[in-house]
Structures are given as C-alpha cells and as structure tokens.
Design a protein around this nucleic acid. Sequence first.
RNA 1: AGGGGCGUAGCUCAGUGGUAGAGCAGCGGCCUUUUAAGCCGAAGGUCGUGGGUUCGAUCCCCACCGCCCCUACCA
Length: 520
Amino acid sequence: MEFEPRDQFEQRQKKLEQIQALGHEAFPREFRWTESPAELLKDYAAVQGPELEANRKEVRVAGRIVSYRLMGKAGFAHLQGGGKRIQIYVKKDVVGEKGFQLFHLLDLGDHIGVRGHLFRTRTGELTIWVDELFFLAKALLPLPEKWHGLADIELRYRQRYLDLIVSEKSREVYQTRARIIRELRQFFDGRGYIEVETPMMHPIAGGATARPFITHHNTLDIDLYLRIAPELYLKRLTVGGFDRVYEINRNFRNEGISTQHNPEFTMLEFYQAYSNYRDLMDLNEQLFAQLAQSITGSTVVRYGEHELDFGKFTRLTMREAIVQYWPSGAGAAPALGELAAPGGAQRAAERYNVWAKANHAEYAAAKGHLSDGEWTGRLFETIAEDKLIQPTILYDFPTDISPLSKQKPEDPALAERFEIFAAGMEIANGFSELNDPAEQERRFAAQIAHGGDEAPKQLDVDYLRALCHGMPPTAGEGIGIDRLTMLLTDSHSIRDVILFPLLRPEAKPEDQAAAEGEKE
RNA sequence: AGGGGCGUAGCUCAGUGGUAGAGCAGCGGCCUUUUAAGCCGAAGGUCGUGGGUUCGAUCCCCACCGCCCCUACCA
C-alpha cells in the first residue's frame, strides 16, 4: 500500500533501505531512555551552561524529529516527546562517519533515540550534545507544515494523530479531559460510591427519549439497541443494594450531529439512595466549583466571550425562566399562575408566537397536540434555554416530560427534576427517581401510547419487576462529559473534545463516479 | 433535512475566461553553535468529481461528493 505524496513515500522507503544497509534494524524493538524531552526541559529550565559543563549530565532520550537543520558537517534537530521539544546537536567528528550518515538519512517525523549530555548553545537553548544516534522508526509520510500546522479542520478530525503531533493545544484538551474524568472518579469514590459497568446492548431502549441504533446478535438471533442511557440498569443496582453507584461510559443516540451533538457521547450517571433532587442540587454546586477550581485554577472559567462563574449557581424554576426571559416586545410576560393554569402555557406560546412571527424569531412550534407540560417545556426551550449563560440550576420540570421522575407532593403536575445549564448548553439532568412501580407502569404505558421514534416500543417489564422488589428513595443524575469538557477547555465544538468524532466516511474516487447521476 | 460558506502542489495559502503561483516539506549542491537557519539549482498539479455554456473553463452555470457554520431533531 502506498499513500500520497507518492514521491516522498518512495524517497523515504529508499532511505529506510539505506539505513538498514548501514547496519540498523528497520523496526527496532525498544530503546531504554532516561528522561523524556518534556522532563528535561522542565527539570533543567533554570540550569545554566557553565553548570552543565561542570556537572555533566548524561542522558538517553527518545523522540520524534520535528525540526531538522543540517549544516555541512554538523546539524541540529528537535526531538518531540511528552508534547515538548528538545534540541539535539549532531557533529560528524563526534558521532563518526557512520553515525553522521544515519543523521543524513533521517527525515522529519522519524523516531530516534540519542545518547549524549546536556549543554546550552550560544543562544542559550538547552540542547543534547549527541555522542550516539539510534534509529527507532521511519515515518514514510511527511508531517504537516511546520509553521501553520494542520489548519484543515477535516484533516484534524480524520487524522487526529497528526493534529496531536502538531498541536500542543489539542493535546492539552485531551489531557484535560482525562483529568476531568479522574477528578470525577475521585469525587464519587470519596463519597462511598461504587463504579460499575452496565450493558451497552439493550433488548429495550429505555432511560431517555431518543432514537436508538439497532444491532443484531447472531447466535441469539435477536435485535439489540445500543443504549441511549444506562439509567434503568443503574437503578436496578440501587434495588440490589448498591446505594451509591456511578458509571462513566458511552451512550448512543441516532440523531443529529452538531457542535453540541455526537452520535456517541460520554455520560456520567450516578445514583444516591435516601436522597432527593435538592440534595443533588447542593452536591452539584460543590462538584462544579471543585472541578472548575482544580482543572482551570479558578471557579471563574473563560468560555469564549463569557466568564462562567461555577462558584455561584442561579436557581430558577422552569416557569420563572420563561417569565424572566420573555421578550420585552411580546407584551407583558405571563404570570407564574397563568403558566400553571390548564391551557396557560399554550396560550402564552400563542401570544409569544405572534411576536416571534413579526420579529423573525424562533417559534414555539408544535407538531400535533401538546399537553400543558409539553407546552411549558417547548416555551422554555424557545425563549430561555440559550440565554442561560451563567451556570444555572433549572428545576420544577413538568411531569409530562419527566417519565422517570417523582412528582412534587404539593403539585403532581411538576416533577422533582432539575437540569444544569451553562453557556446555553444543557450539561446535566437529575431528579428524585420514581420508585412507585404502579406509577412507573402508567408513565411507560403513556409513552408507548404517545408513540413516535423516540418512545419505547415495549414495556420494560423486568425494570418494573425490579421496582416491585423495592427501590429505596433515590436521587440520580447524568452529566455530559463531552460538554463539560468543552466548558472547561474553552472548546466550542464537541468534535474538539472527542478524539475521533463521527464523520461521513471518505468517498473513494470510484464511489464518487458511481454516485454520479444518482439523486435523493 | 433546509439555508450559507469552503474545496488550487504533501502542508499553509495567493490567483486569472487564454498552457498554474509563493512559502514550508521533499530532491541535488555549499555550509561544524543553528532557531520558521541561510545561499544556489532542479522538480512537483486531472485547480474536489461529472456535465453544460464558450473558439477556449481552475474561473461562469448545473448536478454530485466532502467539510465547516446556522436552523430543525436532540443531550
């Protein structure tokens, strides 16, 4: 197999043969190193040249060649490792005829090891004075341009490895992502939670309203759904006596792709017995403040033009948010009581839509008949959702759109549910878990009767049976890790925090020709 | 799915209705402390794909492919 650019591919292959002819293995098996380039730069940042000469520091270092300057009988290069670059200096009369021949045959992108000692050049750069070169692996294809890097966004996603080699910023995003997940584990482990892994292939897609992916198991000859949420399995575990349980893993939803949506995304879900949704709200305030502090060094986090303060959350009910963000041109905002009255949310939506039409704003549109709660949710999404820039806990959701939440005792039309918004994005969703099996069965049945792609097709009888064995009063929550990472790394597309986001497969030229003339 | 934008050398980008340009990378030469090393020389392209208009299309028109942004669905 050969790849573009073919001339360079062949050129480098020839060099590899010449390197072998010098007596080097083409693909050696190991190199014992003493420090990484990143470690050396960090540890010797303050050590000056004379001191390096007085106390000679012998090193063995491996890395990828990312710059190369040959000047007759000597040359410089930079070795990249651990995301950082250290310079090496190779002199013909030090490494010898054969060593220098090897240096000649190296290309940008090759992996090498060096043995030598540290010094500083005239300009003061920490550099390895190379006594011996080791060939470690050949790059048969060239690196992206050294100055501008990989500007083509598509290539950054498709060939993430190149992005990671060339962009320290990109590398840092994924390191931060790993730190966030580590912090989350620490946070929950420290509070007596147990981490579990529940199935990702479900016979019934449940735990959320979303369109699932379908797959097939050959031996059992059954269709399975890639999970849209782990919720119903985690709650079975609270029935089983894991009073505090969490899972960090992928969900799959067969829906749109955007800067905020990838078909597979990572979710933290956790459940805490003997607690309600208010307990979780308090827990979240601690969690987000602590995370922001440890990840970014401050509870105030810059996100684009905004400064998000995770040290203080606003709390709003859904109806309060509608009233608060009601556009001033659309007449008087509805009163809270009006929104709560039967038909009130729909009347408010109709009033809003008159204004929206005249002002080319987004409508609170409805397909078919909506219940009061659905209208309230729709109105919130249209009017308020993208205005919630500062971290906000939105609570008191309509029961109609919360099929797995407990109702408020004083108002069964409202559920003990909240969501967390920041930068206009939903990043978490939590509630007091419905543990009354009869009520849960009614809600499931209503969902199935409601129909649509996103509703379950089948009653999850096993889950209802689990509830019948008694689930303790429990509060549970899901946090979107990808979006959380976006917030804490100032990334504005979910594809910038997912290493390999889903893209359409590259079309081969033949396929493109075959697609000619075909129409949708 | 609808609207807008983009696609030119391996990479980063100019450009024009009349045979295609630069920098970096690569190739040959000079150069033993360089820093986006420098100097000299040569090479590299179905201008995303396919049609159309035209004497002539990389450029204008249409369709298709891919990516980005917005809207819709959604977390």
